[in-house]
């Protein structure tokens, strides 16, 4: 538990303080937001993505393959759907814990400008669900832990760099922007950042709808694939 907290909470915090303060001094403001606040709000969403992805890949794989925990559970009246739903909720919960911890620290450091930041909590949870389901899809295909590196490097890292954690996506070339607008982390940040800053959210319905739709579709696929993996 302590080790997991250090990884999911300590690492973003070091980044936030080191880069937010250090680099923030040179950058000043982006879109009228102090860089430290800009970065903190991005990191809340990034942390939710990270925590849910790790849990839904490494931890779920561990329970599914080496520990055979699901086989034991499936000998009881519990079903594959129950297992998948339980894992999703746990991923969302873990995201919520680490996301709100970063929010609390950011607020102590003066990065949170408005009490509306409290509404980021359900969005953090939803973001966790949105990334837990794709993680489960990857896990359903995984043959070894190394397989997750593909997803990490080809999916998660590009999102971390491109989806507006570090700079506004409007800085990106037009075609890249079009692609990035489809990624769930972009939508999560588009809701979380204004809430932390205390400005109105533009296109809330679009962003929220995108997250819900993405989460629902990937959950549906994840259930089908995990079932196929467990019931042969």
């Amino acid at each position: 538990m302590a080790a997991s907290l250090l990884l999911h909470f300590g690492e973003p915090l070091l980044y936030l303080i080191g880069i937010g303060y250090g680099l923030g001094r040179f950058i000043g403001e982006i879109d009228g937001i102090p860089y430290f606040t800009f970065l903190a709000s991005g990191f809340i969403a990034w942390s939710a993505m990270n925590v849910a992805s790790m849990e839904s890949m490494w931890s779920v794989y561990t329970r599914m393959v080496p520990q055979q925990t699901y086989e034991a559970i499936l000998a009881t009246p519990a079903t594959v759907d129950d297992i998948v739903m339980g894992e999703l909720l746990w991923c969302g919960t873990k995201s919520l814990v680490s996301g709100s911890a970063i929010l609390a620290v950011a607020s102590m450091l003066g990065a949170v400008h408005d009490w509306t930041a409290i509404f980021t909590l359900p969005i953090i949870f939803l973001t966790g669900l949105c990334f837990a389901a794709p993680g489960l899809i990857v896990t359903a295909y995984a043959k070894a832990y190394e397989n997750f590196n593909f997803y990490m490097t080809l999916v998660m890292t590009p999102m971390f760099i491109l989806c507006g954690v570090w700079y506004p996506i409007t800085t990106l070339p037009e075609p890249v922007q079009r692609i990035v607008e489809f990624l769930p982390l972009t939508h999560a940040i588009s809701i979380i950042r204004p809430l932390v800053v205390g400005v109105p959210i533009e296109n809330l319905v679009v962003h929220l709808g995108a997250l819900l739709l993405f989460g629902a579709i990937s959950t549906w696929i994840a259930v089908a694939l995990i079932r196929r993996r467990l019931v042969q």
Partner: peptide
């Protein structure tokens, strides 16, 4: 299936207790 599992106990060949 559900009501059968409710009244069945299984000891699998490989232990899968939760560590």
């Amino acid at each position: 299936l559900k009501s059968i599992r409710q009244k069945t106990g299984i000891v699998p060949q490989a232990d899968n207790l939760d560590p």
